[in-house]
Design a protein around this nucleic acid. Structure first.
Length: 419
RNA sequence: GCGGCCGUAGCUCAGCAAGGUUAGAGCACCUGGUUGUGGUCCAGGAUGUCGCCGGUUCGAAUCCGGUCGGUCGCCCCA
């Protein structure tokens, strides 16, 4: 319970990120952006809010996200604005606004940004949350699909999350492909309407694909023999999907074909994928993505295919099984007198300039307290400065892991502690 | 929008069913034992309007009503 004299707390579904979790959070974001940049993806940042239309048209009016989860408000000029509920539509808006599609393609972009959705909060799901993701825009080649998926997979492995990769293709909207399939699925659902669980019947009409997301046992049973998208793809989409699979196999990347995998946002086409983890409570999706060849045109742009994914950082934190991030403080300076404290502050400054992470006491703690704080800081080394050391211009250098200690002249300290 | 569970110290919780001395424990924090050496041990210290409002009662952390908040699940999604 927080201090009751404080009358405010973070709004429902939002949370403060504080140590030690915040260390992990930072390390994860850095790891993500770092791995994406190494593959040629440039970091971008779009505004936290957009004209509502960007999401209404980009994400799709029919989607749940747009329908009832957006934080929408009017500004003083009467414009309708919306806090971004996801990143892809905003990034595409940015690309089109600056005509980036006229430069070399594909555009390879990455981001780590806050997203906002009004949903009922629960484990692994917040109203304000962070996503790290990438977008590759302007190539229809299967190789870019494979690159994007491989980057996501390797990132999740490096993030110690034990991901399972689910893969599907949802074709494209025309009658010869997903359109025709949806008709067949609808007839199937109508024929089996009485077997569906009550909440799923309505949805079977409005958004038949989503029936596959149901957790109702009776619905799952009824869908046992439902037609699957993968056997109704047009030749071009089928070929694309096969080539993506071949490339992933070349990359020795394990994936599970999941013909029931669908996407929540309307703009997705062809390749759809998702990484899941079993540590997320009732949420299972760690990271989700797919190809969105219709998005640019939905926003009034030219034909411009793209593919990308977004990972929920809070979910990554929940799914992590590996060791925690190491401290960037390598050295803790222990000072035993006022004179030594002055010296310690100067030493800290020069060590930091040399790139050595270090910390020191500011509470006038005694030796014992400072040693304790040194351990707490995560430092490997304690540099001990007492009157005797000051006189002889040397310092006690103690390795906090091995407990070995020696005396080192000041001028050698920096060299000994250099990273 | 709907449902389950839970609100007592910074954290995790005991106490509540049979209302009754100064409301407890563990962890964490600070000090000392060791006037110059951390993770163990010992001693001590600081920290609470028992979520809030009202009712019942001589008396409420405990019973009743309401309210606010948290959490997990449904829906949906990262």
């Amino acid at each position: 319970m927080p201090d009751r004299r404080i009358s405010f707390r973070a709004p429902p579904g939002t949370r403060d990120l504080l140590p030690p979790e915040s260390w992990e959070w930072q390390a994860l974001s850095r790891l993500a952006i770092d791995s994406f940049e190494r593959a040629g993806y440039a970091p971008v940042e779009t505004p936290a809010f957009e004209h509502t239309e960007v999401f209404a048209r980009g994400v799709g009016e029919g989607s749940e996200v747009v329908h009832k989860q957006m934080y929408t408000f009017s500004d003083q000029g009467g414009r309708s604005l919306t806090l971004r509920p996801e990143g892809t539509a905003a990034v595409m808006r940015m690309v089109l606004e600056h005509s980036l599609q006229r430069g070399p393609l594909p555009l390879k972009l990455c981001y780590s940004s806050a997203m906002f959705r009004q949903e009922r909060p629960q484990k692994g799901r917040y109203r304000a949350f962070f996503q790290v993701g990438i977008e590759a825009i302007g190539s229809l080649e299967p190789s870019i699909d494979a690159e994007v998926i491989e980057l996501g997979h390797r990132f999740l492995l490096n993030a110690e999350t034990e991901p399972r990769l689910l893969l599907n293709s949802i074709g494209h909207p025309s009658e010869s492909c997903r359109g025709g399939y949806l008709d067949k699925l609808r007839s199937f659902l109508r024929a089996h309407s009485s077997d569906l669980a009550e909440p799923d019947r309505q949805r079977a009409e409005t958004n038949p694909l989503r029936s596959f997301d149901s957790k109702e046992p009776s619905t799952i049973a009824a869908l046992e023999d439902a037609p699957l998208i993968t056997s109704h793809l047009c030749d071009a989409c089928r070929d694309h999907f096969q080539r993506v699979q071949d490339l992933l196999t070349d990359l020795e990347l394990d994936f599970e074909l999941e013909p029931r995998l669908v996407r929540g946002l309307d703009f997705y086409t062809r390749t759809a994928f998702e990484w899941v983890s079993s540590n997320l409570g009732s949420q299972s999706a760690l990271c989700g993505g797919g190809r969105y060849d219709g998005l640019s045109q939905a926003l009034g742009g030219p034909e411009l295919g793209g593919i990308g994914f977004a990972c929920g950082v809070e979910r990554l934190l929940l799914a992590r099984t590996g060791p925690s991030a190491p401290s960037l403080v390598g050295v803790y300076i222990v000072a035993l007198s006022d004179e030594a404290r002055r010296e310690a502050l100067m030493l800290a400054s020069s060590l930091r300039s040399a790139g050595v992470g270090c910390d020191l006491d500011h509470s006038r703690r005694g030796l014992k307290g400072q040693m304790k704080d040194a351990v707490r800081s995560g430092a490997t080394w304690a540099v001990i400065l007492g009157d005797e050391e000051l006189r002889e211009r040397r310092a006690g250098l103690k390795n906090l892991r091995t407990q070995e200690q020696e005396q080192v002249p000041w001028h050698q300290l920096e060299k000994r502690l250099a990273p």
